[in-house]
């Protein structure tokens, strides 16, 4: 038996909105410690990794490790039927090919139940090692979203460069070019407005803006985002989910032919 109740059901809605343009099907890998999802886009250049600890759910019950394969289209349709302040309970019995969703309003007056057929999804799992990044930049998530949106008006690619002077985003195309510099903030009122730059080594990488714009669909999940960069390695974009989980996106850099 698997059962997990998320008090803030809107978090699930936001998670699905954040990935539905990148992947079509997902496997929920459920264990006693929590739920994880790993999925790649069809081009195999970006990967989504969601990790949700069991402590984010009340109750959480997972008697035996179970993998639940779901089509995001169906999931998206069902979850859209929940109100933002509803709790969402996910239930699956062993040996059945359905997953159940129960939505409950805060006062308990309205409950809704939905069922989705499970799918057999062939997914490749990649082992992502703990990486020592050259630079780790934490910034407001809306700021990162804005930069990606603005830069995609100029070109298809964005160059991200971290030096001791800060982080620079640049793009160029037929129309012209643009550069945006961010420096580490000194004094800010709110921690979530802070720009924090950890620099071990200067780093300079190019990425496809199309994917970064997909990743920023996760902005409603968190006020902050972390960019982890390493030379000649995939970028890792992390959105924390409350204090119990995270959504990470990995993207291969563009390289010289």
């Amino acid at each position: 038996m698997f059962e997990a109740r998320l008090i803030q059901g809107s978090v699930l809605k936001k998670m699905i909105d954040a990935i539905k343009d990148i992947v079509t099907d997902i496997n929920l890998d459920c264990s006693s410690t929590g739920i994880s999802v790993q999925a790649m886009d069809s081009g195999h250049v970006c990967l989504v990794l969601i990790e949700l600890g069991s402590d984010g759910f009340e109750p959480y019950r997972c008697d035996r490790n179970i993998t639940l394969g779901l089509g995001l289209k169906a999931l998206s349709v069902v979850v859209r039927c929940a109100n933002n302040d509803d709790s969402i309970t996910i239930k699956a019995q062993e040996g059945t090919d359905n997953i159940n969703f129960v939505f409950e309003s805060p006062n308990g007056e309205k409950t809704s139940q939905f069922e989705i057929k499970l799918m057999d999804i062939d997914s490749e799992h990649l082992g992502i090692p703990d990486t020592e990044y050259d630079s780790v930049v934490k910034m407001p998530s809306h700021e990162f979203q804005r930069i990606c949106r603005d830069m995609s008006q100029l070109g298809d690619s964005i160059v991200v460069a971290c030096t001791k002077d800060g982080i620079q985003f640049s793009a160029s195309g037929d129309m012209g070019s643009g550069k945006i510099n961010l420096r580490q903030s000194s004094l800010v009122d709110k921690e979530e407005d802070q720009i924090n730059i950890e620099l071990n080594d200067p780093v300079h990488l190019t990425f496809a803006l199309r994917y970064l714009n997909y990743f920023t669909k996760a902005t409603p999940l968190s006020p902050t985002v972390t960019l982890s960069l390493k030379a000649e390695s995939p970028l890792c974009v992390t959105y924390p989910i409350g204090d119990f989980g995270s959504m990470k996106f990995f993207l291969a850099p563009k390289i010289d032919d």
């Binding site: 195999h44 970006c46 490749e124 990649l126 291969a252 563009k254 390289i255 032919d257």
Partner: peptide
């Protein structure tokens, strides 16, 4: 500058 290698070339398939 348009090549992106698939992630499989960066990370192992365990």
């Amino acid at each position: 500058k348009n090549l992106q290698k698939p992630l499989l070339l960066y990370y192992d398939d365990p």
